[in-house]
Simulated scan of single mutants.
Amino acid sequence: MIEAVMVWNEPNNTSHWDFGIDPGWQTFAQMARATGEAVHAEAPHVKRVLGGVSPIDPRFIGNMKGQGVLEAMDVVAVHGFPLDWNLWAVEDWPEKLDAVRAVTDLPVWVTEVGISTFAGDAVQAEGLHRTAKVLRGQSERVHWYSLFDLPGAWEATTRHKQREGSSYFRHFHMGLIREDGTPKPAMDAFAEHADFLGICQWFHYEDHRLDDAVRWLKKMGVKRLRTGLSWSDDDRPNSLDWFDRQMKALEDFELTVTFCFTPEHRGVVPHYTSPPRDINEYVDFCARMVRRYAR
């Protein structure tokens, strides 16, 4: 099932990794390098992807290269949201990718790109057309974020929550499908580019949207899917049942699976963005998941 494993998500973003208590990302680099080696030992055919960076920062990639991380990776990944959170234009994508390629010879995947409907449905539809046109031929993997809007009763994965103002609420409108199950106009735009666009869709523990997602993805002709298995769910009483159900449901897709989120009681501080007290616990989780789902 698993084509690729992503080691963490957005490690240069404080909403996903607290680099305030990991200056220079030294702990992250040790953990990522050890994870890449462990994944290769379990399943040499699986590509190892350095967690997609957001913002796109060649200096961070250069830092990881200098600490030996890229020697244990096959791909580096980037995330970009130029119409929502980034201060650059859709047409700047080739320049952003070239800047990363200047510091590494590894392939560069775009594992999250998306546009919210916070400002209106037409913005997303037109933006998807422009994005697909610009990125076609620029990267061998492009994953549109996301399939579903985030339910209004949930919380978005950010550090400062509502204090971020409109930036926070944009997280709830990134889907091609509204919370009520109706498609947005951008769904038609996606259909025109489904031959090369994949989807990125996260699933929460025992997510009620899983089966609907599979039906929609197959209807849309999606072949490549990026999702995640949360390390923070690993200690739940029925975690393996949920992981098995999720992976079984998604077995028909070419999967890039992201492993991230620190269990609070395993962190240096009790937060999902914290570096773990023992990096080997994360490495072991990744190895176990690869052993279970990628062999």
Rank of each mutant, 00 (worst) to 15 (best):
L217A: 00
F196I: 06
A122C: 01
I115E: 01
R141I: 12
W144K: 00
S232I: 06
T117E: 12
P151F: 06
L197Y: 03
R101L: 10
S167L: 09
D233L: 12
Q162H: 12
A153F: 10
T158G: 12
G152L: 09
G152K: 04
W202D: 13
H143C: 13
Y205T: 04
L217G: 00
D211T: 14
G221A: 08
K133F: 10
S166P: 06
E140V: 13
T111L: 15
Q138D: 09
S146T: 15
V214E: 03
F169R: 15
H129G: 07
T104D: 01
E112C: 10
R159W: 10
W144D: 02
S166F: 02
L197R: 04
G181K: 13
A132Y: 00
F190C: 09
W144H: 03
A186G: 03
T104S: 10
S167C: 01
W144N: 02
E112G: 13
R130W: 02
C200S: 15
D105G: 13
T158H: 07
L106N: 04
F148A: 08
H129F: 07
G221W: 13
D211F: 06
R163D: 15
G198F: 04
V103M: 11
H173E: 09
A213Q: 00
I199W: 02
R101P: 09
V123N: 05
A119M: 07
R136A: 09
F203K: 09
W109C: 10
S230G: 11
H160Y: 14
G181R: 04
A119T: 08
A125E: 07
Q201I: 02
V123W: 01
A125Y: 00
W216G: 08
L225R: 00
I177A: 03
R178T: 11
P151Q: 12
Q162W: 10
A194C: 08
Y168G: 05
G127S: 08
E192C: 09
L106H: 07
E164G: 07
L197Q: 05
M220R: 03
G137T: 11
F196D: 04
H204C: 12
K219A: 10
F118C: 06
G120K: 03
